[in-house]
Each structure stands twice: as C-alpha cells, then as structure tokens.
Design a protein around this nucleic acid. Structure first.
Lengths: 255, 255
DNA sequence: CCGGCCAAGTTGGCCAGCCAACTTCCGGCG
DNA sequence: CGCCGGAAGTTGGCTGGCCAACTTGGCCGG
C-alpha cells in the first residue's frame, strides 16, 4: 500500500520514510503514540526489515521518533523542515515558508585572497577571489546582509549573473557547481556601518551571525559566507540525540 | 589490527568509526585525501562491509567525509566535538574543553505551570513545575544565565540537590532521569534586568539565546530551559549535508 | 592530439537470516 | 496485596550476498 505515489526520490527507504513522516505528522499514531514494529512495517510495505530500519534511521535523525532496544518507537514530535537545501540556500528556505525572497547586489569585487580566505577555501597563495555583498529581503523587508567569498572557478560564474538575480545556487547548479555539504557557525555580532545602513538599524545593534563554508560533492570548497540576520527574523533550530542530529532554519513566529 | 583497545562502546561499528575518526584527524589519509574502499576496510578490520558502512555513516553525519556513489570517500574536515552529551550538559561541555564549570543557584520556586510550559512539558492543567534560575561560570567568569522549568517528577529531585552542585544532569542520571533527546532553538535576545545584573552587562545588550526542550528515552519531556550566553563566549556549530546533520557547541577562539 | 567509448572500481541499495540485549507484561508465589 | 521471575515482543547489531548506478581512467580510433 501507499507507495504507489512517487512521494520521494527513487530509493525505497526514502519512500517509506516519507510515508511514515506524513503518517506521523498527520497524527496517525497519536501525539506520543507508538509506531508499529519494524517487522510489521516491513510486511506492510512489502520490503525487508533492513529497508524499514534505514527509513526509521532518517526519522530518528530528524528527531521525529525515539528508538530504544526492547520497545516500540515512540513519536517525539512533528515534521520539521527537511533542512536539505533550506539551510544552504536563502531562496529555497524563503520559498518553503511561502515568503517571497529578494536580493540586491551591493558590490562585487575581485581581489587576492587573504590568509583566512585561503585557509577556508583551500587556495594557493596569490589566488584571486570574488567577494560579494548582498542585501537579502523577505517579502520586501530587509532581513539579512550576506558577505560571500567565492573561489575563481565559482566566482567567474557569479560575476556573470545579472545583479538582480534572486537565487545564486540555482544558476550555479546549472553550470555544474553543486552545494552539498556545509559547516555553519552561529553567534552574535554588532552591526557595522554597512550593516546598519542596509538593514536600517543602529550601528552596534546586535545581529545573529551565521558563518558558512560550503563544499561540493568532491569536498572542494565552493563558498565561504558570512550572513548577518536582523534579530527577530530568523532562529536556528536543532535536534540532537545520542544517535544523531538535525538542523533547520525557521522564521520566528512565536516566543 | 587496531581494535584491541576498547576505544569506544561495545558495538563493532562504533569501534571502527572511532578508529577511522582518529586516523582521519591524525592525517593518515591526508588533508583532503581518499579513504580506502569499504571492502578494503572491511577486510582490514575483519568485519563485514555492512558494519564498515555503518561506521562510515557516522563519520559522514559528522561531516568528516564525503560519500558519493562511484568514488572513494574523501576527507572533508577534522574531528569535531562528538556533541553527544556536550550539548545537553553545560558541565560536560566545559570539562571537555578543559575549562572548569561552575554554577550558582539564584532562585528555585514552585508554581503552577502556565500554558506555554504545559505545552512544552506535556503536562495536565494545574500541574506544578519547578523553576530554577542559575548563573553559570567558566573558570570563574560568568558566561550564561540558565532558566529551567522542570516537571514535578524531575523538579522534586532538583529541589533536593545542594545549591552549589555543579552538574544537574549527573545526579539526575543516578536517580534514573536520562537526557537523551533535545530540541534547540538559537536566536538573539536583549538582556533584561536580571541578566544584566548576573552577567554584569548593560540592560538591553544582546545575548545569544538557546531554548532547549529535553526528553528522556521514552519521549517524556524532562526539562525546558532557556539559556542566555554572553556574546563572545560561545558559538554554535553545525554540519549539514544532503545526507545528515550534526551540531556541536564550542568556545570562541577565533574570528 | 583530442575525443569518445569501455571496463574496472566503488558506493548505494536491498534482501534474508541470525542472535543478543533489552523492555514490558502477566502470572505465580509469598 | 506486592514482589519476583519468566516468556513474549521488539530493537540493535552483524553477516553474506547480490545487483544497480555512478565515477574514473585508460585505450583506441579518428
């Protein structure tokens, strides 16, 4: 049953995971209810127990269910953003929330990489990098200033994009630049003069900063970025357990 | 080879993962080098390929290696904090950095839970909760204010702890209260009067806020906490990819 | 010399089975 | 009535095997 629809990518376990995720969030198992046993699910979906376990591992990593030896799995919480591309691309994230992402390129310069940039992007001394400064908006209101450093291979492509293009990752993907892995660091920083001007806030007022280093499938760095969010616009959300962890970015709607 | 030492918990794949993690961070495969094939590792460790794959899945989730069909895995970065308990317990985290954690209980009150607290801790209306306010220090200097709400079962135990106890999670664990899963939300907030007094900063100055809801293995909430960190003392760090995500908290030592 | 094709190598995915460790529940016994 | 032990149920872990999808590099032909 239930797998007839192509609800997820090719692999079986992803389809099972997607189906279970939907069942959980729609409350089929209750608020904090117990899931069917792995064997029962395997029979129900017509797959092996190993495949079901692979699907359940995804849900466990996302913090949707518990998993303990000896007991049925228990529903922990409801679906969160799947955090795949939502965290790598401001545009994807905004659209997944139903908001309209916007952006304005403030500056794009080309200059030799400094020591820190060479370290992050794993470049030879003397290599030139492309540095962009962009203001990002959500449904028209400014929420974030993005400073990104690109290695030559990527920067050359970015430089040819029209200045008013909304998404950077999408056109880059069409040129074979893939964003697959990223390291994020989150802290607080005071707004400098540029930040204050672009975000229309006072200089020195606090901003939520996300530093991000992104690599492609081969492990080659493709981007090093520093995003500064206006407080109250976004928050970062993480689930972690003894098994795994998952992160998602979401808009602030509560307190 | 190499598995003679009990470098990790019981399961084979954890031992393999720990060994590989050490080999990667010690540079055995080079800065961005390629790992041996799964089959080769399986033979080398004397385990099946499935076990090696389970170990490698951990490393991939931690952002240490890539994984693509058709190619050997590539070293992405070096070891990060394993984020198991480091993120659940301020004390564990501090000690893992070699710093001396401290704490002072400012207040502990018992009162009926409000709507938000009942929602978070999944309590019946009218249930009483225990609310603590603690100042946390790192090697003597104040870095964080922690406001925690405990459900009755846990709060009763917390109330009996001596006020100067450093770690809360450790004594609770001895009473059968386990912290296994947590949801974290990170954003910025302005210091209120209490925060300013305890952290010796100005009122309204920005603090990094981490809201945390922790559950035990059965999925029952055991804690709801709101931690406010002085800027410049901590940052939160995450790795995410198309496959998985991992989070760790770390001290700020760079910029 | 360049380009395309092909084969080898490698990981992703799935299956079937087995045992151990653990939890829960129920019934018996004190 | 309460405690304890055991059986049933469930997940964790590991093996061995098979095929598909994909990448890489080298060979061959133009």
């Amino acid at each position: 049953m239930a797998l007839d629809q192509d609800r997820a990518a090719g692999s079986l376990y992803r389809k099972v995971a997607a189906d279970l995720r939907e069942a959980i969030t729609s409350g089929s198992f209750g608020e904090a209810g117990r899931l069917p046993a792995e064997g029962a699910l395997a029979e129900q979906y017509g797959v092996s127990r190993g495949t079901v376990r692979q699907a359940l591992a995804m849900l466990r990593a996302d913090g949707l269910v518990t998993s303990r030896r000896g007991t049925r799995r228990v529903v922990l919480g409801s679906a969160r953003v799947q955090s795949f591309s939502e965290l790598l691309s401001f545009t994807h994230w905004a659209r997944s929330m139903g908001e309209e992402p916007g952006g304005r390129l403030e500056s794009l310069i080309r200059r030799p990489a400094d020591a820190a940039e060479r370290e992050q992007l794993r470049l030879e001394p003397g290599t030139e990098v492309y540095v962009t400064l962009r203001l990002r908006t959500l449904s028209g209101t400014p929420v974030m200033v993005e400073r990104t450093v690109y290695p030559p291979r990527v920067g050359e492509l970015v430089a040819q994009l029209p200045p008013d293009v909304v998404s950077h990752t999408e056109p880059l993907r069409e040129h074979g630049i893939l964003f697959t892995d990223a390291d994020h660091t989150i802290d607080v920083v005071a707004a400098n003069a540029d930040d204050a001007r672009l975000l229309t806030c006072r200089r020195g007022s606090p901003l939520l900063r996300e530093k991000r280093r992104t690599t492609d499938p081969t492990g080659t760095p493709v981007e090093w970025s520093q995003d500064r969010y206006l407080p109250g616009t976004v928050a970062f959300s993480i689930h972690n357990s003894l098994a795994s962890s998952a992160l998602s970015r979401h808009a602030r709607d509560d307190d």
